Simulated assay, not measured.
Amino acid sequence: MLEYHVTTDVEKSIISDWKYAGDYSIYNSIPYEEQLSNHSGFGNPCNNYYSFYDGTSLVGYINLKEKESDVVLGVGVHPDMCGKGYGQTIVKLAIELSKVVFGEKTIYMEVRSWNTRAVKCYEKAGFHIIGEPYRKTTPIGEGLFYRMQI
């Protein structure tokens, strides 16, 4: 069973240094210090990050960002741990945590349409695609996204 806690500054710095390969390199982050100075990502006080551990190994994190009527869930899994089932477990725990913290607000995710690995993972955790893909510009670039919710 994975354990989790509110992400520390040290963990935010470690996660910011994770490097993904190939198409997934779009998820590589800028240094934590820059995020703090830009008030973006881990430096945005509106975000609620939690770190997930398998024993002593940091395997992933989530962000639960409360909106007026719903909650946006963001997920990151350590590059070496992708494809090993951690994502699905983390998402299921995130759903439970969101209900405790934010009540019955709808939880949704925005997933790049080309990221079939993530879409399949989130579907296994109970999410499904709502509507048609839409174009969106994010801090890491423009893309075509699916809205997924439970």
Rank of each mutant, 00 (worst) to 15 (best):
E3N: 13
V6H: 10
V6Q: 14
T7E: 10
T7Y: 06
T8Y: 06
E11P: 00
E11D: 14
E11W: 12
K12W: 07
S13L: 02
S13E: 14
S13N: 11
I14D: 06
I15H: 01
I15G: 00
G22N: 13
G22F: 08
S25F: 07
I26T: 06
I26P: 01
I30Q: 12
P31K: 08
P31D: 02
L36V: 14
N38H: 12
H39W: 11
H39Y: 13
F42K: 02
F42C: 04
N44Y: 08
P45R: 10
C46K: 13
Y49H: 13
Y50A: 09
F52D: 01
F52A: 00
F52L: 07
Y53M: 04
Y53D: 04
D54C: 09
G55W: 07
L58R: 11
G60H: 01
G60R: 04
N63W: 04
N63D: 15
K65Y: 09
E66N: 10
E66H: 07
K67Q: 12
E68W: 08
D70I: 02
D70W: 04
V71I: 10
V71H: 00
L73E: 04
L73K: 04
G76Q: 03
V77L: 02
V77F: 00
P79G: 10
M81Y: 08
M81G: 07
C82A: 08
K84D: 08
G85K: 05
Y86S: 07
Q88D: 12
V91A: 13
L93I: 06
I95H: 05
I95A: 06
L97K: 13
S98F: 02
K99D: 09
V100W: 07
V100H: 14
V101R: 15
G103H: 08
Y108S: 05
E110M: 05
E110W: 01
V111F: 06
S113P: 00
S113F: 01
W114C: 08
N115Q: 03
R117D: 08
A118M: 06
A118G: 08
A118Q: 05
V119A: 01
C121M: 11
E123N: 13
E123A: 14
E123M: 13
E123F: 06
E123C: 09
K124F: 04
K124G: 02
A125D: 05
G126S: 10
I129A: 03
I130H: 11
G131L: 04
E132W: 09
Y134E: 10
R135E: 13
K136Y: 03
T137Y: 11
T138I: 07
I140L: 12
I140A: 05
G143T: 08
G143N: 05
L144D: 14
F145R: 01
Q149P: 01
